[in-house]
Every structure is written in structure tokens, then in C-alpha cells.
Simulated scan of single mutants.
Amino acid sequence: MNDMNLLEPAERFVLSHPHLDDIDRDALLRQTTVHLANQYACAQHTAGLFAARAVANIEANGVDAYVDIDNSTSSCVFVRIKGQLRAFSIQH
């Protein structure tokens, strides 16, 4: 399967997890990573990236905030929260 298609199966796995409401986030990431690597024969690194994206997407559902990618750099990430721009340096 093309790596670009792994976000949807990752999100499906997370949303259908029987213990979604009470599982530790790190455990959910590990289980999702293992599932993707085994099910889609992809590298652990790739599976881990898609697992993290899926969990973050689901956690962010309904949140009025986003990363301002156009203004962010390798040392400073800009986030817009309810229209207000906030900067987070790599030190945070």
C-alpha cells in the first residue's frame, strides 16, 4: 500500500480501539504503529509517523487551533488559537 494512504487506516484503527476512552496515549501510539507495520508491511518509522498523525487528528477534532506552517521555522512553531497567534520556540 502506498504510504500516503496510511492515515485513513490509522484513524480507523484508533477510532475503533475497544479501550479508546481509557488507554494511555503512548500505548495507543505503540499499538497503532504495530498494527500499521504488520497490516500494511511498512517500516516502523513510517507506521509511527502515521500513528502519531492519526492520534493528533482525532485529539484535535473540534479544537479551534492550527499550526501556522507558513510562518513556522525549524526553531519556532506558530500556532493560531481562536485567531490569536502564539509562538513556541524549540526550547519549550
Rank of each mutant, 00 (worst) to 15 (best):
S75M: 10
T32D: 05
A27M: 09
S75W: 08
F78E: 07
D64F: 07
N61Y: 13
V67K: 08
H45K: 12
L7S: 01
L28T: 05
S16T: 08
G48A: 13
I81P: 01
M1Q: 11
I23W: 01
S16N: 14
L15W: 03
A60Y: 10
L85H: 07
L36G: 04
A52T: 15
N5R: 08
F50H: 01
I81Q: 10
A41M: 13
F88D: 02
N38M: 11
N57S: 12
S72N: 06
V79T: 02
I69R: 12
E8W: 04
M1F: 08
S89G: 15
T46K: 06
C42E: 06
L85G: 03
H45T: 15
A43L: 14
N2K: 10
D68N: 14
P9V: 07
T33R: 11
L6F: 01
E8G: 01
L7N: 01
A27K: 12
M1C: 05
I69H: 12
D24E: 12
L15A: 06
I90M: 07
A52H: 14
S72Q: 06
D21R: 11
Q84C: 08
T32I: 03
R53E: 15
A51G: 03
D68V: 01
E11C: 08
T32S: 06
Q44G: 06
A43P: 00
C42M: 09
E59H: 08
I69D: 10
I69P: 03
Q39H: 13
Y66S: 13
G83H: 00
D3S: 10
C76S: 13
N71Y: 05
I81V: 13
K82T: 13
E59I: 10
V34Y: 10
T46W: 00
D64V: 06
I58A: 05
V55Y: 06
S89C: 14
L49G: 13
H92L: 11
D21Y: 04
N5E: 10
Q31M: 10
L85M: 14
H35Y: 15
A10N: 01
A52S: 15
T73M: 02
Q84A: 11
R80N: 11
N61H: 14
D24Y: 00
Y66R: 13
V34P: 06
A60H: 12
L6R: 00
Q84K: 14
F78A: 05
R30H: 11
